[in-house]
């Protein structure tokens, strides 16, 4: 039996959703680790892009910032933000983007801006960054979050980045370039979206959790299919590679 932490499970699980040959917006943190792991395992030919301007990047260790020089060495082009978020992303050339969030609703809409009412916010969060652009224009979106009931809300405190908005037809109304979220991966389960309603649906539960655990840890009505499999565990090789990429445990060391 492979030993793993929740964070390692989350990153390894997310990496399986990257397909070989794709143009991937990696960002930083766990999403980047997931993308790099995919590149080192089943998807060696992905084109890893950072919104700061790095294209076809091959960082030997995880960058701390989207603009980190660790992204530069070994990349094939180093340009700027209009290039990546404009020509590439808005141009419809990005296959997959990764996003995290402080809150998500049942349509996969995301809040990364404020906790509390907008008029008198309790907590100022980082904001959109490139998140709204990625959510609007990447062909598909992988959302990664640590699981906490308070994050899976009926109504967002602030709507920063579009998921499927109000359901079928919403993205078309706003003429969006991208297709919206495909999966939500947490340290408890994987979720996808029911095609007819575009609402979040349970996809698989990680070992050690039941379907009821997931239902108890979201604040909206989660769609539960008849058959909910257990998520496959990460391999020893995946865990070894992740620790080589994050030798100081900057990302893997957080949480347990």
């Amino acid at each position: 039996m492979v030993k793993y932490t929740k964070i390692e499970f989350l990153a390894a699980c997310a990496s399986t959703h990257v397909r070989d040959g794709e143009n991937v917006f990696g960002g930083t943190g766990l999403p980047l680790l997931a993308a790099l792991l995919a590149k080192e395992t089943h998807a060696p030919n992905i084109n890893l892009i950072s919104e700061a301007g790095f294209i076809d990047a091959r960082p030997g260790e995880v960058p701390l910032s989207v603009a980190d020089s660790r992204y530069y060495y070994g990349c094939s082009a180093s340009i700027g933000l209009i290039e990546t978020l404009g020509f590439l992303l808005q141009g419809g050339r990005i296959d997959v983007g990764f996003l995290g969030a402080a809150q998500i609703d049942e349509y996969g809409n995301l809040n990364t801006s404020y906790i509390g009412p907008f008029e008198s916010p309790k907590v100022k969060l980082p904001g959109s960054g490139g998140g709204n652009d990625i959510a609007s224009s990447a062909k598909r979106l992988i959302i990664m979050m640590t699981h906490d009931k308070r994050k899976f809300v009926k109504k967002l405190d602030y709507f920063t980045s579009p998921g499927h908005l109000k359901g079928p037809g919403s993205r078309k109304k706003w003429n969006m370039v991208g297709g919206g979220p495909e999966v939500v991966i947490t340290d408890m389960c994987q979720m996808d979206f029911e095609p007819e309603t575009q609402k979040i649906r349970l996809m698989s539960v990680h070992p050690g959790y039941s379907v009821q655990d997931i239902i108890d840890n979201v604040m909206f009505d989660l769609i539960i299919p008849d058959d909910v499999p257990t998520t496959p565990e990460p391999t020893e090789e995946q865990i070894r590679i992740m620790h080589r990429l994050d030798p100081h445990g900057v990302y893997l060391g957080k949480g347990d």
Partner: peptide, 11 residues
């Protein structure tokens, strides 16, 4: 082509 449909427009 970003921002539309969200609170970045509304607030």
């Amino acid at each position: 082509r970003s921002l539309m449909g969200t609170d970045i427009v509304n607030k």
